[in-house]
């Protein structure tokens, strides 16, 4: 047994160099081949009647429905509503998260006042507040935006706070020997040093904002992608539900790309961001 191992080992080692040259391209092909084949199987199963279209619509049907919903204006209208909710919620979360992190990151007193209650609150699942929010804010836009804002504030706060607290003390010492004022130290040393962590927080926050929105729009809403999907459920329109899912997926993907773009632009000083953009 061990003899065969030794014999096969050497030719593989010799071939390793030319192999690594064409492997990346093949890697991309195999990466996309698998999902593509799955969609193909799905379509085939629906076409020959293996999968009931009442349970799940075929890919072709989803594309057709998506196009129809776009043409009659249903999809654009609901998408705009959802985007506005996520955008407002995220905007509030960003302002609140950054302000709180600055207060608790830059002063000990601020940390004592702000950090402890936030650490307790963050252990609560934000979605559990839905009933309370409906009681407080009714069923209009406010509870949905508030839910998005609440859920996505935490990752922004936590990451920026960590970033501010973990600035290299040697750089702060250097700033002292250069005679930098407190305000200048914050502007030139602390904030840029914490920016990578803030962007990590932002990426999490964007992901959470979509999650919050899905729930908020399915519990009570008369517009939005979630509402469109709930409506479709009543009429057994699996194709519309799946269009909604695809839209959510695309939104998540697009927002992640935006944050990546922000990272590449704002953190261009990091060598890793120039070499490996795909990481």
């Amino acid at each position: 047994m061990s003899g065969t191992l030794i014999r096969t080992a050497s030719p593989v080692a010799v071939r390793a160099v030319p192999r690594s040259a064409w492997r990346p391209r093949l890697g991309i092909l195999t990466r996309y081949a698998s999902p593509f084949l799955l969609v193909l199987f799905w379509q085939a199963a629906c076409s020959v009647g293996l999968l009931s279209t009442r349970l799940v619509a075929s890919p072709a049907q989803i594309v057709a429905t998506g196009w129809a919903l776009t043409r009659d204006g249903t999809l654009p209208t609901n998408l705009a509503v959802s985007l506005a909710r996520a955008g407002f919620g995220l905007g509030i979360a960003f302002v609140a998260g950054v302000s709180l992190a600055l207060v608790s990151g830059l002063s000990r007193l601020g940390e004592d006042i702000v950090d402890a209650p936030l650490q307790i609150l963050r252990t609560l699942p934000a979605l559990a507040l839905v009933p309370l929010f409906i009681l407080w804010f009714g069923i209009g836009e406010t509870p949905k935006i508030a839910l998005v804002a609440l859920g996505s504030s935490f990752p922004i706060y936590l990451n920026l706070h960590k970033g501010i607290r973990s600035i290299d003390p040697k750089l702060l010492e250097m700033a002292r020997t250069l005679g930098l004022s407190r305000a200048r130290t914050i502007r030139d040393v602390i904030l840029p040093g914490a920016l990578p962590d803030l962007l990590v927080g932002l990426r999490f926050a964007v992901g959470i904002s979509w999650l919050m929105l899905v729930v908020a729009e399915q519990v009570n809403a008369d517009s939005g992608i979630g509402h469109m999907m709930m409506d479709a459920e009543d009429f057994l329109r699996t194709d519309i539900i799946l269009v909604g899912l695809v839209i959510y997926g695309l939104l998540g993907l697009a927002s992640d790309q935006i944050v990546r773009f922000l990272e590449n632009t704002l953190l261009s000083w990091r060598p890793s961001h120039r070499i490996g953009r795909s990481t």
């Binding site: 040697k170 750089l171 250097m174 700033a175 020997t177 250069l178 200048r184 953190l267």
Partner: peptide, 24 residues
């Protein structure tokens, strides 16, 4: 007017070399 050079350069990675030089 005193200046210190440490064992590590302690440059701010997010500022270009010339900005580091005239920091403050």
């Amino acid at each position: 007017e005193v200046s210190v050079v440490f064992q590590e350069s302690r440059l701010l990675p997010w500022k270009r070399v010339w900005q580091n030089t005239v920091l403050g």
